[in-house]
Amino acid sequence: MEIIKKNLKAADSIASTSYAMARQTSKLINCRAEDIYITPFGVDTKQFYKRNMNKGNEIVIGSIKKLTPKYGIKYGILAINYLVNNLFAENKKNTKIKYLIYGEGPERAELEQLVKDLNLQDIIEFKGRIPNNLVPQALNEFDIFLGTSVLDSESFGVAVVEAMACEVPVIVTDVDGFKEVVDNGKAGIMVPRKDYKAMAEQIYKLVKDSELRVKLGKLRENESLKSIIG
């Protein structure tokens, strides 16, 4: 940490990929966040774009993230459990959804056990590590993208931006990096971190309404998210 501080203080100028990271950096070396240049991640729209896919009847929900506690995949699993056993309780047998989790990490065994304990093996599937060149294809298989992080150390939601470029509607938690990506809820649905019930309720809205999914996937700055989701 001291080496990082020394190097940052010795720099003539500092650039950050997000305002969230700039704020954390300013605290680290006692400088103004406003003096740090912001150079956000870009998305290669020649790779990340909406593709025509032959989809079945299932609604596919997905996440792409390292399986560690700070990324909150557990709360995505709990949201699916609440969705299936509460919001879809009366029509459970006819609820055709899948939750695909891409990524590896030290929490995988614990998350797999949680899925077994909740008896969700037929709905939730761990897909493992995904090569970068296959991410656009995977995103286009999704009908809904979940960003479930629980800490403000999530400095920028690259996978969220990539999903948005593919016109996949996104539901994210209110961590700092995601706030920037979805413009504080103007370009995607935002729920409180760890609030799996709130996430489930928003998933429910999108699962039930295909037109709403399309509208959110194509959301533009001049449209009102509130007017679309009510």
Rank of each mutant, 00 (worst) to 15 (best):
S210G: 06
Y204L: 10
Y204C: 12
E211G: 10
Y196I: 06
E201H: 10
G217Y: 06
D209T: 12
R213G: 00
Q202D: 06
M199T: 02
M190V: 14
K218F: 02
Q202G: 01
A200K: 06
K194F: 14
G217R: 10
K218L: 05
M190C: 04
V214R: 13
R193L: 12
E211L: 15
K218Y: 04
P192K: 09
R220M: 13
R220Y: 08
K194S: 11
K197Q: 13
K197C: 12
I189N: 00
D209I: 15
Y196E: 01
R213L: 05
R193C: 08
E201W: 08
I203N: 03
V191W: 11
L219V: 15
G217A: 10
S210W: 01
L212A: 03
V191H: 07
I203C: 02
L206K: 02
E211F: 08
V207F: 00
M199Y: 10
L216F: 00
K208G: 12
R193M: 14
L212R: 03
R220Q: 13
L212I: 11
K218G: 02
G217C: 05
P192S: 09
S210Y: 04
L212M: 09
L206D: 03
L216D: 01
K194I: 14
I189Q: 03
Y204P: 00
S210T: 13
L212T: 02
K194G: 07
K218W: 01
L212F: 03
L212P: 00
R213S: 04
L216W: 04
S210K: 15
Y204R: 05
P192G: 04
S210R: 13
P192D: 04
L206S: 06
K218S: 08
V207W: 01
A198G: 03
R213K: 08
E221V: 15
I203A: 10
D209G: 03
V214Q: 11
I203D: 03
V191N: 02
L206R: 05
L212H: 00
R220S: 12
A198E: 05
E211Y: 07
E211V: 13
L216M: 07
L216C: 01
K197Y: 07
D195S: 12
R193W: 14
V207E: 07
D195M: 12
D209F: 06
R193E: 05
Q202Y: 11
E211P: 01
L206H: 02
E221N: 10
Y204A: 13
S210V: 14
S210A: 15
P192Y: 07
D195Y: 09
K194R: 15
K205Y: 07
V191L: 10
L219Q: 09
K215D: 02
I189A: 03
E221S: 15
K208H: 10
Y204H: 15
V207A: 11
R193Y: 13
D209C: 10
A198T: 05
A198N: 02
M190T: 12
I189V: 11
R220W: 06
V191D: 02
L216H: 00
V191G: 01
V207M: 08
K208C: 15
K218N: 12
V191R: 06
R220V: 11
R213Q: 04
Y196L: 08
L219N: 02
E201Q: 14
M199V: 07
Y196K: 02
Q202V: 09
D209R: 08
S210C: 06
L219T: 08
E201N: 12
A200E: 08
Q202F: 08
E221G: 12
L216K: 05
Y196D: 01
L219R: 07
V214A: 09
K194E: 14
R213D: 03
V191K: 06
K197R: 13
